[in-house]
Design a protein around this nucleic acid. Structure first.
Lengths: 348, 348
DNA sequence: ATGAAAGCGCTAACAC
DNA sequence: GTGTTAGCGCTTTCAT
């Protein structure tokens, strides 16, 4: 045994946990060999590997990744920054991201900005302290300081969801503007003449703003003379109750509306169910469209016309890009447009 | 300047990033003082703090938390292990957890087990390597090895969702069995005589199993002679399509059913909408109940009778327990029963 | 195939 | 109020 039976003089509280050295002395090899046996067993003789594995399970050794991180300058960690965890679209993307990263041994740090770019900056700063090997972030609008932090971070970054022509590094998303344009074109082609857009403008949610502006532009182009009617619940909350409220506002303020176009399927579902309750026929009295193609949309009665967007794929493509960049394959920043599709159903 | 103008001889690649030493030499103080100025500014003179802050922003210093972790043996990190990210109930709990932890400077590691306890064990092992200061985990059934790992981890742990009499450390949840019992009691009190339970048994999902067993027990108690009818979609998937499938199976196999009791509001919503589509009157021809009290349940037509469970609160209470334990307040393990409530609406 | 030495960037302990 | 010293547990580099 190479271990000093008295143990080293502890000048400072130790971690109290089993270390590489403990495993090494039990296995009668150097710490270095244990390290190798764990990470590159092919460089170590079979006998030694067996002995080390025995020592590991005997001692219950769990490697300290902070030490590994510090020594190797790689954390095997990915930071993910999203507006909120409890919105299924982002949860789906995280799910996709996690599914791709886990098999490669990367672990996910998650933080929610609550749609505030100041909070986002704080989060980025805090996360950078963990020296992640890659970063996933929803959105392309950041504070100047945040953008700077990201630019000089030297790690691969994927901005997601929005489209922009000047991403910081990689971009995976689709054009919210084009998607809204497409569904407006669709309803106009169906003969609707008086569309109203219904959203809940969260300060800081640039995606919602994009959609609203795109609506106005497209109406101006396709229905000259028609005002760009927009209603806003003002709270920023995206739920079915807000959909009902938006329906009320639209009905009262813009009774001429023949198609009510919601910025989310959640709103649309709430409004649609409320219409049935009130005896408003859809699409007879009023047509309705959504955004997102949530599962409920094809189950509603009538089924909901909406825009399908690639939530999970955003996560998986982002994960693949990160993996590729972190393993040195591919040096170029990529811009991946995952597109969208108008899903024509019964409600419009 | 105390800095050596030639710099130290680099025997090994440096991180290339700004370190505490860089800030210290720019501010003309010792690294220790910089550290103090960041973490306990009240121990440092105001002038020094100002100078250090200036040096930090000049250099763009971002502390390396791996090094901090290693030196201090505290990671300011919490590990959260959930069955899947894209199930709103768990996303809601994470949201609650995150909301409580963030203000205290803790960051969240997240991993999904996909309902496999073997995968869960792997995740625990990997996460323990990061030496989290606390751990949140959904479920109380783990592999023996995982249980052992958790028991000897010396960090506060919160098991959540399920109820058990022998938690590893803390427990925050409610009794799935009691909840099912309560809603069966409710429908029986309403005069229904032929209940059928509809679930999708995911191998490894002990919560679903609990519910099913509780259903059988309660039926045996309240409706003697009545068989415990259960239908199972067999896929483990929880979505509205599965709800429709379960409806089909129940209708065909157990036409005597007067109330179809779903293990999730998602199933119930799919089935309810399908009933309307087919002209089956609810609750006239068939009553329906759900589980979870999702937002959609109070918007459906008819509104859905269900059981409300405290998703977000599970996360926030867990967060509070962890914070308390990590700051040394409270040494005792706690068991928090957050309860549930039957929400009587129109569908049953 | 294995080991020895050095050091990653930070904080704890103790001095002054 | 501030500095000095000695590590935290691992990986890298270089020897053998």
């Amino acid at each position: 045994m190479t271990a000093d039976p008295l143990g080293p003089p502890l000048t400072r509280r130790a971690t109290l946990s089993v270390t590489l050295n403990d495993v090494a002395s039990l296995a009668n090899v150097s710490p270095q060999t244990v390290s190798r046996a764990i990470r590159n067993p092919e460089l170590v003789s079979e006998r030694t590997v067996t002995r080390v594995q025995w020592a590991i399970s005997t001692t219950g050794y769990v490697p300290n990744l902070a030490a590994s991180n510090l020594a190797s300058n790689r954390s095997k960690t990915i930071a993910a920054i999203i507006p909120t965890i409890s919105a299924s679209v982002f949860a789906d993307a995280l799910h996709g991201l996690d599914a791709v990263l886990t098999p490669h041994g990367y672990q996910l740090f998650i933080g929610a900005t609550d749609y505030s770019i100041d909070r986002e900056e704080e989060l980025i700063r805090a996360f950078m302290g963990r020296r992640p090997d890659g970063l996933f972030i929803v959105g392309t609008k950041h504070t100047p300081a945040a953008t700077l932090l990201l630019r000089k971070s030297r790690i691969p970054i994927v901005e997601a969801w929005n489209w922009t022509d000047e991403p910081i590094d990689n971009l995976v998303g689709f054009s919210n503007s084009d998607a809204i344009e497409a569904i407006v074109e669709y309803v106009v082609s169906k003969g609707y003449k008086h569309p109203t857009f219904a959203a809940s403008l969260q300060p800081g949610d640039s995606r919602a703003l994009d959609r609203q502006e795109s609506f106005a532009r497209t109406v101006a182009r396709l229905l000259p003379g028609e005002p760009p009617r927009v209603v806003d619940s003002g709270t920023g909350v995206i739920d079915m109750d807000a959909g009902v409220r938006l329906l009320d506002i639209a009905l009262k303020r813009h009774p001429e509306t023949d198609v009510l176009m919601f910025a989310s399927d959640i709103f649309a579902a709430g409004a649609l169910l409320e219409c049935r309750r009130r005896g408003i026929s859809v699409p007879g009295d009023l047509a309705i469209t959504g955004f997102g193609d949530f599962e409920i949309s094809r189950h509603l009665l009538p089924t909901l016309t909406t825009v399908a967007v690639p939530n999970v794929e955003i996560g998986t493509r982002a994960g693949e890009l990160l993996i590729a960049r972190m393993s040195g394959i591919g040096e170029e920043s990529e811009m991946v447009d995952l597109g969208f599709s108008v899903v024509a159903r019964e409600s419009a």
